[in-house]
Design a protein around this nucleic acid. Structure first.
Lengths: 345, 345
DNA sequence: TTTAGCACTCAACAAGAATGAATGCTAAGG
DNA sequence: CCTTAGCATTCATTCTTGTTGAGTGCTAAA
């Protein structure tokens, strides 16, 4: 499909601005791209685009920069959808390795995405709250302490080590653990704390030092509550010119990246491929691009790329789209395998 | 002990510069501190101090700033050694809580240190290489995968989840695990890979898909190799004026903080209380202050505070010293308890 | 040995001047 | 009617220049 002249100009402006981070003027446009019309014509078109809310000026006589709406339009209608070959290759390498868990594969893919796009990448794991506790194992250690390991049905591991009080009776402790094991196995993570509360009085009959045991478990359960958010390549953001020389902005962004706010943004977004450009909340300079990823076992996660509003949306979106697609295919293959095995039995 | 006039002036200069981050001149000194001599006298002394290599000028007619040597001298002879009451209180709170592991306590203390000093704090855990594998547990999961959990004698937990190949035989896998368990229990972490290599041929007789099992284990062992380095409060560094407005420097520092270089610096340093001021390697602006911490079971770790060369050494060192001292006392108490129990048996 | 006095240095700030990339508008040309 | 050359205008950026003030070193007197 041929682009209209107006769209063509907008496309060039967006892409040029993405490269240079500088406002784009009519002259620059002519010098860098093969356009068969004069600067004045371009200026007229730019005026129209500005009136349509797709472009902005930083001051009265500056060149134009894309507005949020402009980026959105670019993303929706103008981008190239070209996938970098290197991403294809690297992903291939990951997927051909053996003995990997699903989450490992996702995280490695996320690292590739971050490296290739020079953006920070975020993986929002499936919500642990929905998972069920699969196993509780207690291991006594040296120095009078013990470790409890919790595993959920999807292989999420949480552990808690604690020092035992001096006068604890080993048999009582073992009984105690048996009780807890029976009661908690299969419980959804979200209900663990409540159930533990319910067990508390029974525990008191079993063992003198019930308090320590109770404390250790409830503390460990708190860790489950922490969302599973993995962040890669935040260093890349340092190299973005818009942040490099504004220490203050950089600081805000880095703290945002590690705060739950980011999570809200990512998890709120819906649809397979979501684009959040600029001006959400206080952060005009940050854009988030995310994609849903269906995992084996009806689970869902999101992979997101975070970068300056002036990010290379084409590159980022294409890469993201490609990777999630390939991962889902790969997961399907795994699931098929297990079905085959099921039939054989 | 009374300070000599020269030392007194140096002390004031260091402390004033720590507060303001601005070169200190003779006038400033008189205005802010009660000194019974004129600016000219101070200037003479400053000249002497400069000749001794303890002070520096940023340009010919600027005030003086401490040199690395000057800081060192201040740390060795001049600092106040006063411990902030708030640190004492907060540490007390931590130490009185129940059901905590040793590492948890250390890490919480480290957070307190970071908060109170406004510096980044680093905990270098005892080297996992020296620890012994205490337990290996395999838990089958949904979706045809399994999780292996490894626990060392000091309660360090490592886990690896992997997808099982479709045609694996459950009994063979169980036998396999038994074998591995027998062979590896009690092995020092550093020798795990070698032992696994030795088991490999035996494994091949047991199970067709030996490769996946072998891969999963060796990959998990690699994780043990990663040094245990915990970093807190790196955000504090953003608020230091010397970094706030130099995005480039900030970037370098943040990458340094997460690179193994930091670790080298910390682990190389020896002695109970070590101070590394400026000019190591390329990093003139970064100082590291660290302290050895004896843990239960002959283990050792280091806690370090990282900040600008112009950090409040008095505050940092005093706090660090106090915290490590209190922790060691606390650990002794725990160890005593277990001895008592031992006798009872 | 201390200190008052003085000439001197230099970063930091501010105000002005020059530059140049951009604009909008108008009027002529295809 | 759409395109474009021409021109006055705007405004961030850069350079220049002057001023200020905190600082120094040195000398000579107390």
């Amino acid at each position: 499909m041929e682009l209209s002249r107006r769209d063509l100009i907008l496309k060039h402006i967006v892409e040029h601005f993405i490269k240079t981070a500088l406002p784009v003027g009519s002259q620059t446009l002519i010098q860098n791209y093969e356009l068969n019309f004069s600067s004045a014509t371009i200026r007229n078109e730019m005026l129209a685009l500005e009136n349509a809310g797709l472009l902005e000026k930083t001051h009265t006589s500056s060149g134009r920069i894309p507005s949020s709406k402009g980026y959105q339009y670019y993303v929706d209608h103008l981008r190239n959808k070209s996938v970098d070959e290197r991403i294809k290759q690297q992903l291939q390498v990951i997927l051909s390795q053996k003995a990997q868990s699903v989450t490992e594969i996702i995280q490695k893919s996320s690292e590739i995405l971050s490296n290739m796009t020079k953006l920070a990448s975020v993986v929002l794991g499936p919500n642990a709250q929905q998972e069920k506790l699969m196993s509780i194992q207690v291991t006594p250690l040296e120095n009078n302490s013990a470790t409890v390991v919790f595993i959920t049905d999807s292989g999420y591991v949480e552990n808690k080590t604690f020092v035992l009080p001096k006068n604890i009776e080993k048999e009582a402790l073992a009984d105690c653990m048996n009780l807890i094991n029976k009661r908690l196995k299969g419980t959804p993570v979200s209900e663990l704390s409540a159930k533990m509360e319910a067990i508390k009085p029974i525990l008191e009959d079993f063992i003198a030092e019930h308090d320590v045991v109770y404390q250790a478990f409830t503390q460990a359960f708190l860790n489950f509550a922490g969302e599973r958010l993995k962040l890669y390549g935040k260093d890349s953001l340092f190299n973005q010119p818009e942040f490099a020389h504004d220490g203050d902005k950089l600081r805000k962004i880095l703290t945002l990246l590690e705060s739950p706010k980011l999570l809200n943004h990512v998890s709120k977004s819906s649809g397979n491929l979501a684009v959040n450009i600029g001006d959400q909340d206080q952060n005009q300079d940050l854009s988030i691009v995310s994609s849903k990823l269906r995992m084996p076992g009806e689970k869902e996660s999101r992979i997101a790329l975070v970068g300056p509003t002036r990010m290379d949306y084409d590159r980022a979106l294409s890469a993201l789209e490609y990777v999630t697609e390939m991962l889902e295919k790969y997961f399907e293959k795994i699931t098929d395998k297990s079905k085959v095995e099921g039939k054989r039995k």
